[in-house]
Lab assay of single mutants.
Amino acid sequence: LPHTAVCLVCGEAGKEDTVEEEEGKFNLMLMECSICNEIIHPGCLKIKESEGVVNDELPNCWECPKC
């Protein structure tokens, strides 16, 4: 993702460097949905019932829970 990318919900950049544990890092890193192209911190999504499908081949790419 470009350095200028920010979260659609909170308007902040990736914050994964501020935590140690892997789950915390994931919730604070910016992810781009391969379907709707929205860039968001997974932790900013209010959807709890399902998780997005992470694409292991492309960094910061997933199918968000909304899609």
Rank of each mutant, 00 (worst) to 15 (best):
C44L: 00
H41R: 00
C33H: 07
E51W: 08
C61F: 05
W62N: 03
E38R: 13
E23G: 14
C7D: 00
V19I: 08
K48G: 10
T18C: 07
E20C: 09
L30V: 05
N55L: 07
L45G: 09
L28E: 13
A13P: 15
V53F: 05
K46F: 07
H41G: 00
E22Q: 13
E51D: 12
I39N: 13
L58P: 04
N60C: 04
E22D: 08
E23S: 14
P42S: 02
N27M: 13
G11W: 03
L58G: 07
V6P: 09
K25S: 05
E20W: 04
P2G: 15
E22R: 11
K48H: 09
G52A: 15
C10V: 00
K66E: 10
E20S: 07
N55R: 11
E57I: 07
P65L: 02
N27E: 11
V54T: 14
S34A: 06
V6S: 09
C36D: 03
G24K: 10
P65H: 05
G11K: 15
N55H: 13
L28R: 08
A13S: 14
L1M: 13
G52D: 09
C44N: 01
W62M: 04
I39S: 09
K25I: 03
C33G: 02
E51M: 07
L1Q: 03
C7A: 01
E51P: 05
A13T: 11
W62Y: 05
M31G: 03
L45R: 11
E57S: 13
V53P: 08
G24E: 12
G43M: 14
P59H: 01
H41K: 06
I39T: 10
L28K: 14
G11L: 12
V19T: 12
V53H: 05
S50E: 12
C61S: 12
D56F: 12
I35Q: 08
G11R: 10
V53M: 10
K15S: 06
K48L: 12
A5P: 12
I40K: 04
P42T: 02
I39Y: 13
D56C: 06
L30C: 06
C64M: 00
T4Y: 12
I35V: 12
C64T: 00
C33K: 02
P42A: 05
L8Q: 04
K15E: 07
G14E: 04
E49C: 11
E12G: 13
D56G: 13
I35P: 00
N27P: 11
K66N: 03
E23L: 04
